[in-house]
């Protein structure tokens, strides 16, 4: 099991934003779908150890995130919703800084990342300053950076926000490819339903609760809906009516 979440809850003061979440994910491309304010970013903060909660359990490749946080963090690569690149440093400097934070030597880091950079068409831009890159290239760089320490799990929090349709398409295609090629678990959080494909493993999060989990096309069949748009509206509105 790549990610295991059991009975996870989180509150900001009196406002409970995550309620008893339970789900498990294996290697492959997984989508966490939910509208803005569903609790996706809070869940990411918990999965990345930036927040801690006393309610529930998170395991990354069977490593308890709370008990063995450092070991768990070593297994994870993250692309946050907000860019975390240093704009005034070069592509290479950004990559090497991240590698150093995982205790990787510059030589090994560049060796690890070379094929990924090639695939993401960034090899030619190693010495360019990040400020000179387009939004799409910056996102690709963040994806490459998340892979530099060869993690088993990659978390991407709305990585296509602010990108045009072509760049979005390219990035999602690259990431699907990486999940398949590297055999790792990818959790892609989004509120954009057109980013979900039929064979993706889907977790539908709404108002801090998991409304559904399973293969997207099977969930559609089980709920008598034609596509993810209908599925989403059916499951979220049915709950609202309750």
């Amino acid at each position: 099991m790549s990610i295991l979440v059991e009975n996870l809850s989180y509150s900001y003061g009196r406002k409970q934003v995550l309620k008893e979440l339970n789900f498990s994910l294996t290697a492959g491309f997984n989508v966490l779908l939910g509208p803005n304010g569903a609790g996706k970013s809070t869940l990411f903060s918990l999965l990345t150890g930036l927040f801690e909660t006393g309610y529930g359990e998170i395991k990354i490749c069977n490593v308890d995130l709370i008990e063995q946080k450092r070991s768990a963090l070593r297994l994870m690569g993250v692309v946050f919703q907000q860019s975390t690149l240093d704009l005034d440093l070069s592509v290479k400097q950004n990559l090497l800084y991240h590698a150093s934070l995982h205790g990787i030597s510059p030589v090994s880091a560049l060796k690890n990342i070379e094929p990924i950079l090639e695939q993401l068409q960034l090899s030619e831009r190693l010495n360019d300053r990040v400020r000179q890159l387009s939004g799409g290239h910056r996102r690709r760089l963040e994806i490459a950076r998340a892979l530099i320490h060869q993690p088993k799990v990659i978390l991407l929090d709305e990585p296509t926000v602010g990108l045009d349709t072509d760049s979005r398409g390219l990035i999602i295609e690259h990431v699907r490819g990486l999940a398949h090629e590297l055999g790792i678990c990818i959790l892609w959080a989004t509120h954009l339903m057109d980013e979900v494909s039929g064979d993706d493993e889907l977790i539908l999060l709404d108002k801090g609760q998991v409304r559904a989990q399973g293969r997207c096309d099977r969930l559609c069949d089980d709920n008598d809906t034609k596509n993810v748009f209908e599925l989403y509206h059916k499951l979220t509105s049915s709950v609202e009516l309750m």
């Binding site: 990345t48 070593r74 993250v78 860019s83 800084y97 995982h102 205790g103």
Partner: peptide, 18 residues
């Protein structure tokens, strides 16, 4: 504010060391 602090805090090294 720019978010790059998250990178540092997500490093597997002990936070006091970082």
């Amino acid at each position: 504010e720019m978010g790059s602090m998250k990178l540092l805090l997500m490093s597997p090294f002990p936070r006091p060391f970082l």
